[in-house]
């Protein structure tokens, strides 16, 4: 692409990422450093929303259980840290650890494995059945963690949060941790952009557009959808791991089905099937969720209609305004 003649969409991406890059500096300059943890949380939810966009926007799979993978990832990190701090054996061995190479990898892999299992069953259905079955599975996971008394059950789990990443980045250092998460978000955006434009990515989009045609062409669609679902689950679990590191405290509420709904709202609000849109959606959603209650306690009454209008008139959400006209509806690049 010609560096001097960038289109609106590229400009938008550059401006958005630049704004996120300077955010902590602005916060420090204006004595708002206490908010940096909040900003990190926004980026972490943005990663989770991007992962949901892979299945929702590109795969056309409306999953109402995505927060389960996010929550499982977070719990893996929390539990491993908790065991390491208390020196309590796990499965009869000293498996607890603070090492993020282990905890974050385990979070992604186990969430991915769970997504694969849930996908194996739920991807045999479609439409409303798929929505309901993913919801049911997610609630099962939710109640499983609620019933885990050893790890706090309903009350959640607190664990020491002084994680050092790769021996250099201390998660206690607000700014350094922010830039780590920001760097991860950028890497995720780049990798998922490549993914959706690859052969695999086009197959997944073909399944969204017309699965019947895909089968008639000879694609065993199930395996591609399952791979995509698994990958999205792993990425959500990874975001959950970051969330756990950010909060040092987690509870089952982060995987309640309403949190899955929030993730869908972020994706739809920002723009489905655009990858960058969900980032915008996460920023907008968490900002509105934080500020609207200051004006009225009935903020949902305002937020609901805003969302409805967006879905009706801008199917590609906020980011859709910055797309060329023919890209605003359907399709996906």
């Amino acid at each position: 692409m010609n560096a001097l003649k960038l289109d609106r969409r590229t400009w938008f991406v550059i401006v958005l990422l630049a704004a996120l890059a300077v955010l902590p500096l602005v916060a420090i300059a204006t004595d708002n450093d206490y908010q940096i943890a909040q900003f990190r949380r926004i980026l972490i939810f943005a990663i989770a929303a991007v992962s949901l966009d892979l299945i929702l926007g590109y795969g056309g799979m409306v999953s109402l259980g995505h927060a389960a993978f996010f929550g499982v990832g977070a719990y893996i990190v929390a539990i491993l840290n908790w065991h390491a701090a208390r020196e309590v054996p796990l499965f009869g061995m000293m498996l607890g650890t603070h090492n993020v190479l282990v905890t974050w990898t385990a979070a992604a892999m186990l969430s991915g494995a769970l997504a694969c299992l849930i996908g194996l069953v739920s991807l045999r259905t479609s439409g409303i059945y798929f929505i309901m079955i993913t919801l049911a599975f997610a609630q099962m996971v939710y109640f499983f963690f609620v019933s885990l008394r050893a790890y706090g059950g309903d009350d959640g789990l607190r664990f020491p949060g002084d994680t050092v990443v790769l021996g250099v980045i201390d998660t206690e250092n607000d700014v350094a941790f922010y830039y780590l998460v920001f760097g991860i978000l950028c890497a995720v955006l780049y990798a998922t952009r490549r993914l959706v434009n690859s052969r695999f990515g086009l197959v997944v989009q073909g399944c969204r557009e017309n699965e019947r045609r895909m089968k008639a062409l000879g694609f065993a669609t199930f395996r591609y959808k399952l791979a995509c679902f698994t990958l999205a689950g792993a990425l959500a679990g990874f975001a959950g791991a970051l969330f756990a590191a950010n909060e040092s405290y987690i509870s089952p509420s982060i995987m309640h089905w309403t949190r899955s709904g929030d993730l869908i709202v972020m994706v739809v609000l920002g723009g489905m099937g655009t990858l960058i849109g969900p980032v915008v959606g996460a920023v907008a959603f968490l900002f509105l969720e934080k500020t609207l209650p200051d004006y009225t306690e009935h903020w949902m009454v305002v937020f609901g209609p805003i969302l409805l209008l967006l879905v009706l008139f801008a199917r590609r959400g906020i980011f859709g305004w910055f797309l060329p006209k023919e890209d605003r509806h359907g399709g996906g690049h």
Binding site: R194, L195, N197, S198, R199, F200, G201, L202, V203, Q205, G206, E209, N210, R213, M214, L217, G218, F219, Y224, A227, G330, G331, G332
Partner: peptide, 28 residues
């Protein structure tokens, strides 16, 4: 595939018999 261009529609069909459908990095 209504949302794809005509060429993308046919390229998908070519890909069906060309394989390598788990390539995730190179732009198709």
């Amino acid at each position: 595939f209504k949302g794809f261009t005509a060429l993308d529609n046919v390229a998908m069909a070519v890909q069906a018999q060309d394989g390598h459908n788990f390539r995730t990095w190179a732009p198709a």
